[in-house]
């Protein structure tokens, strides 16, 4: 489903974001990426749908190279990848329905989308997605009137409306309280099991990672230092992932760089 071939990311200041990563993620897996902040989790995840460009190697989605895709081909591949963000990234002023429908824009012509004309089928799909995350009654409310947990559910519904083949989630629960965390993670697990949807989730919390993942990948300074089943991820393994980083200063530098680049990319 997803294949990393010799993938490296070197930032212009010479720091390695990702270091020669080779791995394969199969259909229906629930993969959790763990690591310290600055270990390259976000870079790893966002390189899958090419929100981040990589500097070396190639990434394949269903045997198609997203690294070499251009224009419409790239948009077509991205359409099959749903994404959930730490800060939900909803359009606050639009209704929940419209936010969910925006997951469908990749399926229609530009002109049709400028006019904002969605077919009836799309609206049904959007309602169904909202039903799957248990908030169909919020469809006509403005997105910013919902609580954090509900907003994250809207963003999950938006990803579902895309009818994706896999879903990426970048720290989906980092800005939620523990109660909401459980609900949102349960939603993701249910979607993974009911629809056999491949999930790749960034988390920094070990307990949540153990509870939901069937495979855990540990990143440290851009390198894969652990890759195995959730029950193989012992405390010792986590100590290795989270252990004292040998180049603390370098990691700090990259953290800052990532933040700058994230703001620059919007």
């Amino acid at each position: 489903m997803i294949a990393f071939k010799h993938v490296s990311k070197i930032y212009p200041n010479g720091i390695h974001g990702l270091h020669n990563i080779n791995l394969h993620i199969g259909e229906g897996e629930f993969v959790v990426i763990v690591g310290l902040s600055g270990a390259g989790k976000s870079t790893f995840l966002q390189s899958i749908n090419r929100l981040h460009e990589i500097s070396e190697g190639e990434i394949f989605i269903n045997n198609k190279s997203i690294t070499k895709a251009k224009g419409n081909e790239l948009y077509r591949i991205r359409r099959d990848i749903g994404m959930i963000f730490q800060n939900f990234n909803l359009v606050h002023r639009s209704t929940v329905m419209r936010n969910v429908l925006s997951g469908r824009v990749g399926y229609h012509s530009t002109l049709r989308m400028i006019l904002g004309l969605f077919p009836k089928k799309d609206k049904q799909l959007a309602m169904e997605a909202l039903r799957r995350v248990n908030i169909p009654e919020k469809a006509s409310m403005r997105a910013d009137q919902l609580s954090g947990g509900q907003q994250q559910r809207v963003s999950i519904a938006r990803a579902l409306a895309q009818e994706p083949k896999l879903i990426l989630a970048d720290e989906p629960v980092a800005s939620l309280d523990p109660m909401m965390t459980g609900q949102v993670m349960d939603d993701l697990l249910r979607i993974n099991q009911e629809l056999n949807m491949t999930m790749v989730v960034n988390l920094h919390d070990i307990e949540i990672a153990r509870k939901y993942a069937n495979r855990i990948i540990g990143l440290k300074a851009g390198k894969v230092v652990f890759d195995g089943k959730a029950d193989e991820a012992t405390d010792e393994a986590f100590a290795e992932i989270y252990g004292k980083a040998d180049k603390t200063s370098e990691r700090m530098g990259m953290e800052q760089y990532e933040r700058i680049e994230n703001t620059a990319n919007g």
């Binding site: 991205r78 909803l90 990749g106």
Partner: peptide, 18 residues
Amino acid sequence: NAKEALTATGANPIKTFM
């Protein structure tokens, strides 16, 4: 942030903007 989300759904720049 919403722009990032739209880009991720496979929207081209015009759709993202709209």
